[in-house]
Design a protein around this nucleic acid. Structure first.
Length: 308
DNA sequence: TCTCCTCGAGATCT
DNA sequence: CTCGAGGAGA
């Protein structure tokens, strides 16, 4: 109903030595309808656990079978548990202004943020690090990146309860393993962080190599410079660029005085484009009027030309 | 070259 | 939520 924008801290990619590792158990996945029933955290200094925090939290409503089965927490366990209003100040002291680290940590952060706001009118704004995000970057080929998938991938202790404090410890092990993995592949964690930026088309095109040595030098695209605009229907832009490269053409990302072909993809979806034509197309039309050897090709004609 | 924007697709948390 | 694709603009 009344959705609002949470003024959270920033999401960071880093491997600090001092931080708080957090995990919560809840009655479900929705911050709107579900409640926190357990909060746990580890205080890490110099990569060592120096303190722990763990508390059940009494919810307003009874919890269902599924959650009891999942976590091992029963309604009986929660009967005499402290409520959020009692637990939150202690937790706030524990985390202070540290980095918060966790697995899919936005889940925990969002629940905690709302709890702090409602109970203490406090906007939790600690910067945070999501280990799931790091895991996807470090192990991109892994089929799934659930916490348990990483536990078994690294052959870590898997047979433990699905409770907040235990999950904190599991997550801590995974984080350390990921850090070791990064250090084995990169000179430093700083180098890993730099890899982070996604490649521009200029870089992608430059790195393409023809998959053959034999070129037909009479092909219209041989040694010609090709530029794409819009989204191709039949393949990605990178795949199309590979085809061009294979027949001796050169792909660039911008229209210049050297451009020979502009290949037109679909631009319908793009709200940015005014008048049905992208800036690349308008620029190309200008250059054609001024006499440049430049041809604008719709996608289907591009494939015909490639295959000729 | 760099930054910011929008859109759609695809996971993950209890 | 995060990421990648793609466009616009400086």
């Amino acid at each position: 109903m009344d959705t609002y924008i949470r003024e959270k801290g920033r999401s960071i990619i880093d491997f600090p030595q001092n931080y708080i590792l957090i995990d919560i158990e809840t009655t479900g996945l929705s911050t709107e309808w579900d409640e926190i029933i357990e909060i746990a955290a580890l205080k890490i200094k110099q990569d060592k656990i120096v303190d722990t925090f763990s508390s059940l939290v009494k919810p307003q409503f009874e919890i269902d079978e599924f959650i009891t089965e999942l976590t091992g927490i029963s309604n009986q366990d929660l009967e005499n548990a402290p409520s959020l209003i009692d637990v939150l100040p202690l937790f706030k002291d524990f985390i202070s202004s540290s980095f918060l680290i966790g697995y899919n940590v936005n889940f925990d952060i969002n629940f905690l943020y709302d709890a702090f706001l409602e109970n203490m009118n406090y906007k939790m704004n600690n910067d945070y690090i999501d280990i799931l995000r790091i895991a996807r970057k470090v192990l991109p080929t892994l089929e799934h990146h659930r916490l348990d998938d990483l536990i078994s991938y690294y052959s870590l202790d898997e047979r433990r309860l699905h409770r907040a404090l235990n999950d904190c410890e599991k997550t801590f092990s995974v984080f350390q393993s990921l850090k070791e993995e990064v250090l084995s592949k990169f000179a430093s964690t700083e180098d890993f962080k730099k890899i982070n930026h996604s490649k521009s088309y200029d870089e992608i095109f430059k790195s393409l190599k023809a998959e053959t040595d034999i070129f037909d030098e009479s092909h219209p695209i041989y040694n010609k410079i090709c530029v794409f605009t819009g989204t191709l229907e039949k393949m990605s832009r990178k795949e199309a660029a590979q085809l061009v490269t294979n027949i001796g053409g050169i792909c660039k990302n911008n229209i210049t005085k050297d451009t020979n072909f502009l290949i037109l993809g679909n631009t319908d979806y793009s709200k940015n484009i005014k008048g049905g034509k992208s800036n690349k197309q308008k620029k190309a039309e200008q250059l054609i009027l001024s006499g440049q050897d430049l041809i604008i090709l719709p996608e289907n004609e591009f494939y015909e030309l490639i295959n000729q």
